[in-house]
């Protein structure tokens, strides 16, 4: 089974998000990474390739520096990387860049995406690529079982669990919880350094949604009441629990 995962280079921000004056992420002190959903997608692809003696490719649309994210995915076990040159911010342009790349490197049995990118959260690149190829697609996927001709996809919905079946080739936009991604091993990192990288620069047209600037949401002006330190605080906490009526 040949699987391709699409990943996006995104800034790795922590507790505080710092913006520049013109409303962009201040990435001077930040590293870059791929989102949690996509880490699970890479892990799943690697497991499928191992199980089926197939291949696991990883593709990104982005600047030349996005090679770092491809190498990371290859250190996790992906066996080939595809760097599609482009901005990677406009979801329509990104999808058409991926489609153009697939015409060169395809076909695959299964294409994996994250449910939403970790920074832009557009919820759509996977659906666009699937519809562009006329393939089945499902979002929010947390379980994948492959048969020879079809795939079974599981996802959580607010009041339960849904199971879908689709003929292969198929596309899944997956969510964290699908599996527990591995950390790359030293051996994996060494192998990734030398793994083949394919570069493609397709022509793509811009889409109709354009991000202008980012803003931090209005702050939360909470006064914190410190109830005490260490074990001594237990009685103060107890009386708060009583006041809130949460003690049974």
């Amino acid at each position: 089974m040949d699987v391709l995962v699409c990943v996006k280079r995104v800034p790795a921000f922590g507790a505080e998000v710092v913006l520049t004056e013109d409303g962009e992420l201040d990435t001077r002190h930040l590293g870059f990474t791929i989102g949690p959903h996509e880490e699970c997608a890479v892990e799943e692809a690697v497991r499928i390739a191992e199980r089926t003696s197939g291949s696991a490719g990883v593709l990104t649309v982005g600047p030349p520096e996005a090679e770092e994210q491809l190498r990371y995915a290859m250190a996790m076990g992906a066996d080939h990387g595809v760097l599609v040159e482009g901005a990677g911010e406009d979801p329509q342009a990104t999808a058409s860049a991926i489609l153009a790349a697939l015409r060169e490197i395809g076909p695959y049995d299964l294409l994996l995406f994250g449910n939403e990118s970790a920074d832009a959260c557009q919820y759509q690149v996977g659906a666009r690529v699937a519809n562009g190829l006329g393939l089945p697609v499902l979002a929010g996927v947390k379980g994948i079982e492959l048969g020879p001709e079809e795939v079974t996809l599981r996802r959580d919905v607010p009041d339960g669990v849904e199971v879908y079946r689709a003929p292969l080739p198929a596309v899944a936009a997956v969510a964290e919880g699908l599996n527990l991604p591995r950390y790359p091993s030293i051996k994996g990192r060494l192998r990734a350094k030398k793994a083949p990288l394919h570069r493609i620069s397709p022509e793509v047209a811009a889409g109709g949604l354009r991000a202008l600037r980012l803003r931090t949401p209005p702050g939360i002006g909470t006064e914190t009441k410190v109830l005490g330190s260490g074990a001594e605080a237990a009685d103060a906490v107890l009386s708060v629990l009583e006041d809130l009526g949460v003690l049974r």
Partner: peptide, 26 residues
């Protein structure tokens, strides 16, 4: 920690001490 500065109530200390003490108090 942002969790502390944004919360309504806080206890400063090691969870391994605070939680057992709280359980005992309850």
């Amino acid at each position: 920690a942002p969790m502390v500065t944004r919360s309504t109530y806080a206890v400063l200390g090691d969870v391994h001490e605070v939680i057992p003490a709280l359980v005992a108090a309850i």
